[in-house]
Write a protein that binds this DNA or RNA. Sequence first.
RNA 1: GGGCGGCUAGCUCAGCUGGUCAGAGCGCCUGGUUUACACCCAGGAGGUCGGGGGUUCGAACCCCUCGCCGCCCACCA
Length: 724
Amino acid sequence: MTLHRQKLIYRDKRLVNWDPQFQTAISDLEVEQREVEGHYWHFAYPLEDGSGEIVVATSRPETMFADTAVAVHPNDGRYAHLIGKCVRLPIVGRPIPIIADDYADPEKGSGAVKITPAHDFNDFKVGQRHRLPMINVLDPFARLNDNAPEAYRGLDRFEARKKVVAEFEALGLLRGVENVRHAVPHGDRSGAVVEPYLTDQWYVDAKTLAGPAIAAVEEGRTVFEPRHWEKTYFEWMRNIEPWCISRQLWWGHRIPAWYGPDGRIFVAESEGEARAAAAEHYGRDEALRQDEDVLDTWFSSALWPFSTLGWPEETSDLARFYPTHTLVTGFDIIFFWVARMMMMGLHFTGRPPFERVFINALIRDAEGAKMSKSKGNVMDPLEIIDTYGADALRFTLTAMSGQARDIRLSTQRIEGYRNFATKLWNAARFCEINGCAASPGFDPGAAAAPVNRWIAGETVKTAQAVTAALDACAFDDAASALYRFVWNIFCDWYLELAKPVLQGMDEAAKAETRSMAAFVLETVLKLLHPVMPFVTEALWGRTGERKEMLITAAWPRLDEGWIDRAAEAEVGLVIGAIGTGRALRSELNVPPAARPALLVTEADAGQRRILEANAGVIGQMLRVEGLKFETAACPGAVPFLAAGAAFALPVADFIDLAAERARLEKEIAARAANIDRARRKLANADFIARAPEEVVEENRERLAESEAAKDKLEGALARLAALQ
RNA sequence: GGGCGGCUAGCUCAGCUGGUCAGAGCGCCUGGUUUACACCCAGGAGGUCGGGGGUUCGAACCCCUCGCCGCCCACCA
């Protein structure tokens, strides 16, 4: 009503997209262009004075009964002399003028075009320009009406088409038939061919409303994420057409307009109000008839952000929640809903309805095809959930929600994340078995053991990364940070490093490790909860005495001060030694049962201390027996370098010397390549002059490291040769 | 016709503001009865980052151009 009073909603007689099957007008957005095989029929229209003919082409011959002109381009020399003359419309015998209009394209067809203002959007505009009569020859079912010749009345449009063509042929006026592939408008719901149709409808002056909606995005008061969608939004908004909002349907909000006996319109909030207005106008109480039509569902939806909050009352909900923060939706909804909510929100409240619009990707099948029922390639989410679990599906979609436009959903990927859920479950079970429970006074920042200090820091880093990713709508980053932390850091390293402690005798160390494991798990559950609500909530319930559910638990805000560089270096050395040592064993096929000693051939005092302190874990995880500090060259031991220290495994008895030689040569070659690359860079004067000092320095260090490593490996190779 | 997105290991995808960024998962290969987990553990092979040109000391990342693939909008003479 407000919009009507402001003249932003008005009644008008224009062409609409008419769906003859559903018997209703539909908006431009509900029209789908489909490529179809069709024809252009070339018809000759004889000049009224008998001096010749003019040929026009059409793909819809049945509309010729509604022709009210033939247009040619004003500069088209071929037809200049005909402008102002008339042709006699065959079959009906009605004379129509030949007019000059830029719309006629000399390049297309014959250069002359029939103008049918009541049945074509372009022709409608031409008709308006030239004040041509508008003749409607179709009824709501798209059958020819009484404006068509007797023989055609009641005929379906496609039947009529054939008949018109046949008649032209019989009259000797068919000048050609062309096969063409062209786009034909279809109703996106009914699938029926839509007809431009002249009717009275209600319209919204979208152009006026679009102004502020465009400005809001231009000024960044509403931001699209990813940003490139703003271009799509602008493109549509800037070329917006009047929006037809009345629908001839049974469901929807009925249009609050009432008609008086003389057809006068009373728009009001209620019938009572309308009658009061009518009474005032007519001077007496009059029976009114309410408009039969309902509003386009998107019109109603456009009001959603504030109507759901109590508008137009000044409710506390409206004050508190409007404007909303982020709207999450698909790109196919940008025009239908996002744009319309923007228009209405700004118009009625002066503020855009949301600060951010996150456009998520469209899910396709594994081959990249859009899922559709007719193609039969729809993956039923319920079936996926039955097989892999809702959390696995959610995690998959989250992990794949990059900036790209679509997601190819494959069961393999889902299976992988189902495994992740299981992994998490098992990690929690491990904690449970080992009595890892949250202890009330526990301060992760005050842990004594380096491994515990390290994992506390890693947890902080992960929490920060996940939080930042979620804030930036980089959901895939959040998912992969969690995946990596849980699997590759917490399970692969922390829990493994914790095992010896938990099996040991040091009760204080055990207690600290239990508390830390519980703390990390708890944090992970919180961080993972938005993506995997079910598993995390279940684990939350069974891994501790809980006063509240996980869903209401506070988001982790951890102390950055827990990040401990010394602890990182310490664990880095342990992990490096184990990891590199394992690779070497595997490459040389050292039998798993072999328990050689681990020789430490080069380590500074600090490294030595660390290695000694972690001898137990290293022994267990690398499957070695004891740690020996040897400074002398050890024939028969294969060397390896890790985290700045040098090690060797005395496994000559177990291995193939040729394999070891190959391994050493490969290592040396890799170092040589690094050396070469760094040397070339450093030899480049431009590089030294223009690259930042830190980059240059980095390359110098890399060169020195690689050279030292290469020397050591070459020494080992020489000793190996001596052995053979 | 106008516009947008994509083209990185066999497959599905990460790689933001140019300087170990060539990565992950799956698949593949090798090995594994390690007191949470075989939906697992350890290790490995595999890519001249669609083609060509340019900018730069340096480009998967910036510019130009070409080529495919997909989508949106407009178009029923």
